[in-house]
Amino acid sequence: MLNIKDLHVHYGGIHALTGVSIDIPQNKIVTLIGANGAGKSSTLKSIMGLAKASNGSIKFNGEELVGKPTTQIVTKGIVLVPEGRRIFPNMTVEENLFLGAYTRRDKDGINKDLKWVYELFPRLKERIWQKGGTLSGGEQQMLAVARGLMTKPKLMMMDEPSLGLAPLIVKDIFSIIKEIHKNGVTILLIEQNAKAALEVADYGYVLETGAIVLEGPGKDLLSNDDVKKAYLGEHK
């Protein structure tokens, strides 16, 4: 579905991504793990058109995305649930969700999806009129994911959804990721919580200082010694 070939990204003089190639097949959950500064967010940003690719290609169902504006990329069916949630604090839960559906014109479809999203996240349904800024961290993360779903994406990219959340909430988030995937959404997941990510992923890539150093099915990476040492904590 999404094919990234030899992607290079520069921030001024910094070579953030040095030739990254990633394939995301339709209907799979793919995860990108790595330490801070490895280039995970840069990858997502360049897919969304928020960061300029200095070289390489990003093809979505055969269409080249590099150089296209973010508004177009969103309408093609790719959505990013950003790091830190970035929900709109001054707007109600429902307004946030409607903003997710901003590019859509099908009123009936939007209302149907709204109902589905409230079923997925009953906590949000209780808080329809609450302003986003008054929600707890976990609720904000749910809102951010729900808002992404309102775009009716084919590919949903999530940047560190477990960041700053209590372990129980993290469990909820990951079971929701599985639920969304069951509904036909392809998922690209970026996580520092490598264990949870690899447990839920079909395939994984390990990123280190701008390059892919390891890739393989999620289960294989979980049992890989190098991955264990670097990202899963030394076995006590």
Partner: peptide
């Protein structure tokens, strides 16, 4: 006006 980058992600022009 609240979050320029997040607004971009909504597909807002």
């Amino acid at each position: 006006s609240k979050d320029y980058d997040a607004a971009k992600l909504m597909g807002i022009n």
